[in-house]
């Protein structure tokens, strides 16, 4: 591995990308430290999802630097490599394998060898079994482990997806709108879960739910028109006139 360029877990510098003339990201710079839980807010079209696309290798930036763990240039890697490096991603719309059981979903997500032949001859070991049981308990799906994911409620799918990210054992988690469509109780439980996860790894959460962000009580970055508008505590950011103008409204 190359010498560390930064000490940050995630380092974006001057990243721009445009689609058919539309600038989705405009010289965006953004840094996440190891073990940090960071919230991102911003209006629709601010570039939140595009930023995640760039970090996870789905989209290539037109310019700018993206480094993971201080030394890995993410712009040269594809999704699978980046996932194997230890970046997990939860989509805006809960994306689980609907025709698999909850158990199989987690088994597939486990951080094991992922080649064709390793999977072809894979046998479930006691260790893996224990790990899956543990995650099931964490995301409160033990009772439904043999049900098809398609039959879960919306909130349960969100949790299953988070469980799958945990099974992946990532160093950095990108979570896109985890509480959309959840009840208030589920929302506050999710906040607790994320804070718990952030004890051992870095987490970036994109959310519109300001109550949820407040529950998290972490540093907030507000994006607008593809670059950072304001950064700081929730109170600092929500009092910033530019943020009020662009996002919160008067």
């Amino acid at each position: 591995m190359d010498a560390k360029i930064t000490n940050s877990i995630l380092y974006l510098d001057n990243v721009s990308v445009s689609f058919d003339g539309f600038r989705a990201l405009n010289a965006l710079s953004f840094v996440v430290e190891p073990g940090e839980l960071r919230a991102i807010i911003g209006p629709n079209g601010a570039g939140k999802t595009t930023m995640m696309d760039i970090i996870t290798g789905k989209t290539r930036p037109d310019q700018g630097e993206v480094y993971f763990d201080g030394a890995v240039d993410l712009t040269r890697k594809d999704e699978a490599e980046i996932a194997q490096l230890g970046i997990g991603r939860k989509f805006q719309k809960p994306t689980v394998f609907e025709s698999h059981t909850v158990w199989d979903n987690l088994e597939l997500a486990l951080n094991r060898k992922r080649g064709v032949f390793s999977t072809l001859f894979y046998r479930l070991t006691a260790e893996d079994k224990a790990r899956i049981e543990e995650i099931l308990a964490t995301v409160r799906l033990t009772a439904r482990k043999d049900d098809y994911a398609a039959n879960l409620s919306h909130g349960q799918k969100q949790w299953l997806e988070i469980g799958m990210l945990l099974a992946q054992e990532p160093k950095l988690l990108l979570v896109d709108e985890p509480v959309a469509g959840m009840t208030d109780a589920e929302t506050s439980e999710t906040a607790l879960l994320l804070k718990d996860i952030a004890k051992t790894r870095s987490v970036v959460v994109v959310e519109h739910d300001m109550g949820f962000i407040r529950d998290l009580g972490v540093k907030v970055t507000c994006l607008a028109e593809g670059s950072v508008l304001a950064e700081g505590s929730i109170d600092f950011v929500s009092n910033d006139p530019k943020v009020i103008e662009n996002y919160l409204g008067r």
Partner: peptide
């Protein structure tokens, strides 16, 4: 293979 969406492809998230 080179341009899976053809010569005049639309780009972006849409």
């Amino acid at each position: 293979q080179r341009r899976p969406r053809g010569l005049f492809a639309l780009k972006g998230r849409a």
